[in-house]
Design a protein around this nucleic acid. Sequence first.
DNA 1: CTGCCCTGGTAACCAATAGAGACTTGGTCT
DNA 2: AGACCAAGTCTCTATTGGTTACCAGGGCAG
Lengths: 137, 137
Amino acid sequence: MSEQQQEQRPDLPLDVFAAFCPSREVFAELADKWSLLILASLHRLGEQRFSELQRSVSGVSRKMLTQSVRTLERDGLVLRTVHPEVPPRVVYGLLPLGRGLAERVVTIGDWVEANSPAVIAARAGFDEGRGTACEVA
Amino acid sequence: MSEQQQEQRPDLPLDVFAAFCPSREVFAELADKWSLLILASLHRLGEQRFSELQRSVSGVSRKMLTQSVRTLERDGLVLRTVHPEVPPRVVYGLLPLGRGLAERVVTIGDWVEANSPAVIAARAGFDEGRGTACEVA
DNA sequence: CTGCCCTGGTAACCAATAGAGACTTGGTCT
DNA sequence: AGACCAAGTCTCTATTGGTTACCAGGGCAG
């Protein structure tokens, strides 16, 4: 009882750069491939069931999908709704909290799609330089 | 010779959600804790040498810092400058390409710092619900 | 002159984690 | 009866992250 909401001390600045800070833990949990792609996919396509999500985030294994989506649910970003039918139907959707994050995540997805040619070109240059240097030596 | 910039076929839409797409590879490489924190830190604090970066991104090991920063350099996001002094001084800074991404990354860092209390509260609620259910059963 | 310090790494080793694939549950369709 | 969904879960292996020890090579204290 008694909402034990720890009124976060303003003297503890919640800094993602601090290893010990709770916000770092949150950041570390979210900053992975699958979590970000799931958020972005839910943002783009809206509510999806498990298998739809697995298709839309192509390449994710059932295990990792379950795990990531569980974490997102636990963190209050995603709502998991079980329709007790047969066969079972489980639908995942963004909660308001998750939507705020997802909006920012999609900007990163967009950046990557827009700039991956440049990145790949840079890689080619880097590897070529390295390679040449090695060959010459 | 002949800038081999592959004019990316508009029929290959560069989709981060596609497992096979090059942009997915780029995304997967960048979407990790350390890479994102390094980009954000370089954006916030500007150029930093290796040890400064290790301090500002607290918790990162030398190995992971080296590895991540090498990848970012290879991808054309970060510039690594070696000053051949003694003791050696190596400075890392954002390139224009990296700056564009870093700007978006910091918005995620800001979101996490602003919303981690809500996330942590959601977790508490989730775990409590689970816990109670288990206890009751 | 000897030896220890400094930075920016690298190599080796070990624990944790991601991925691949079989198994589960239970109702329905053939 | 047997196969077949969906949404997981379990197990086993490959990869990865983290920790420690070590290196170069000049400065400088003794």
